[in-house]
Structures are given as C-alpha cells and as structure tokens.
C-alpha cells in the first residue's frame, strides 16, 4: 500500500477484478448445488477501511443456543408512532424530494417479522449528516435530523416518510462519492437475524464506482439493496413512493436447495 490515495480508476479496476473472479467461482459453486455469495466480503480491499477491520481467521460455525434463538422485544412503549415521519421533527419542513419508503420485513421462509424494531438514519438532501464527524461542506438543514424508528405491523409492514438523501463525498480514495442511501437497522425474531444495511435508489450512476455497495461481489445479491420506485405508493401532490422488502434469515436458512440439502 502506498500513502497516496488511489484514483477512482484504480479502485474500479480492483472492484472489477474481484467481481470477475467471484462470478467464475460462484457460477461453478452454484452449478454444483452450492450457495451464491449472499453477503459482502469482510476482506474487501477496495473499501480501505476493511483492511485492518476484518478477522483473518475463519468464523467458527456453531449451533445457536437459546440466547441467539430469541431476540429482545420492542413495542410502542419504546417507539412513538410519530417517529416514522422524519419530516415533522422540527418547526419547518425539510428541504428535498419528499418520499415514502414502505415494505415488509420477512424471514427466509417468507413469514412476516411482526412487532419488531426498525431504525433508520440518513443524510439530508444535500448529502450531509448531522453527525459531528461529517465535515462535508454541504449545508445542514435545520428542519431535518434524519433519524426515524418504527415497529413493524402484523404483516411485517413498515412505512417511513422522509426526503430523498443526497450522495456525498468520502475519503476512501480520490473523488470518492457514495451513492444516495438510507441506513437501516433491523431485529428479527432471533438475534442471529440482526441486520444493519443500506437501501439504495434505482439507476444510481455511482453504483459501479462505490466499494461499499460493490463489497457484495454477487450482482443479484447487491441488487436486493435497491428500493423500487412504486407509483402506486406515490401520493398525489405530496410524495414519491418507494418499496423495499427486507429479508432476514436465521440459522439454517442461509441457502436452501429445493432438492434436499440437509437442512
């Protein structure tokens, strides 16, 4: 590693080399009845912060005990229903493209994850976080904090009202920009299902350039992070609607072949 930050072209070349290698090996593995690559790589050099922050030992595979097979309980005594609207937290309206993000939280068998906690945080329309370590010179919006919480409903459903976040620069490499995204944090019925992830928007030109999105080497897997524009969810004269369903899995459900893989 040199001290000079890499150029976008160098990062993109690294991303493409890893993807080509993954595509070949995953195709062979899936053809042999194995699993595609469903999660990001922990050791993903184009994302420089991962270099010293991934374990070098294999994770130790264990059967979950009762502690891991259950999850903390949350409810409306913890989360006010108004916390799902990020546009009403201040005296005025935030600047930006008003939108709703709605969907369902499901487990790997397609069952709803009911009455569980979803937390969300995001940059404002100018791509600036309220976080004090974010010193990107874009304006803060006095009417937008960018934090929401909700409890899923009986069908695992959720809905947030917010504004579309802007892309923003970061220092991974020269001229690095994150595609617009919303951070999501989710609990399932088992602690093994705990998930923190990011939702993206369709057609973002920054996808191919972004080492965080691309840390998921499988194209189909990373496409699961893209919310879909859904005109039926748009509210006339008010907001644009996006739909994003989130699938959590627990132990033994990472990948199930239809033809009798052993659990």
């Amino acid at each position: 590693m040199t001290n000079a930050p890499a150029s976008q072209n160098e990062i993109t070349a690294e991303i493409e080399a890893i993807e080509a290698d993954a595509a070949a090996r995953v195709a062979a593995r899936v053809a042999a009845g194995g699993s595609p690559e469903l999660q990001p790589r922990r050791d993903y050099a184009p994302y420089r912060s991962s270099l010293l922050r991934h374990p070098t030992h294999e994770l130790v595979r264990v059967d979950p005990e009762e502690v891991e097979r259950v999850s903390p309980a949350f409810g409306h005594t913890d989360v006010n229903v108004l916390e799902s609207d990020l546009t009403i937290q201040h005296a005025g309206e935030p600047i930006g493209e008003r939108m709703t993000v709605s969907g369902r939280v499901l487990d790997g068998e397609g069952r709803p994850v009911r009455h569980q906690l979803i937390e969300l945080w995001q940059a404002n329309a100018g791509g600036r976080y309220v976080h004090k370590r974010d010193q990107h010179p874009a304006p803060l919006d006095p009417n937008f904090t960018g934090v929401g919480r909700a409890i899923t409903g009986d069908k695992g459903e959720y809905s947030f009202t917010t504004i579309k976040p802007g892309p923003y620069p970061w220092k991974n490499h020269m001229n690095a920009w994150r595609p617009a995204h919303i951070h999501f944090s989710l609990f399932g019925t088992a602690f093994t299902q705990r998930l923190i992830t990011q939702m993206y928007f369709p057609g973002d030109p920054l996808f191919a350039l972004d080492p965080i999105y691309q840390s998921i080497a499988d194209a189909d897997a990373r496409a699961r992070l893209i919310g879909q524009y859904d005109h039926s969810l748009s509210v006339p004269e008010f907001s644009l609607g996006y739909r994003w369903d989130i699938v959590l899995t627990g132990p033994k459900s990472t990948w199930m072949e239809s033809e009798g893989a052993d659990e």
Binding site: Q39, A123, K132, G146, R224, L225, D245, T249
Partner: peptide, 23 residues
Amino acid sequence: SEPTPALQTPSQTVGPFYGYALP
C-alpha cells in the same frame, strides 16, 4: 398466497455516521 422463501437482504457497514441515530 402462501409465503414463499426468499433470499436474505445483504448486510452493509454501519459506517461512521450512526452516532446521532443508534446510541
């Protein structure tokens, strides 16, 4: 309709800017 199995949503890093949201 019956629930249909679905593949899991991948993880992404929590990033550096969760400090005003999660704690």
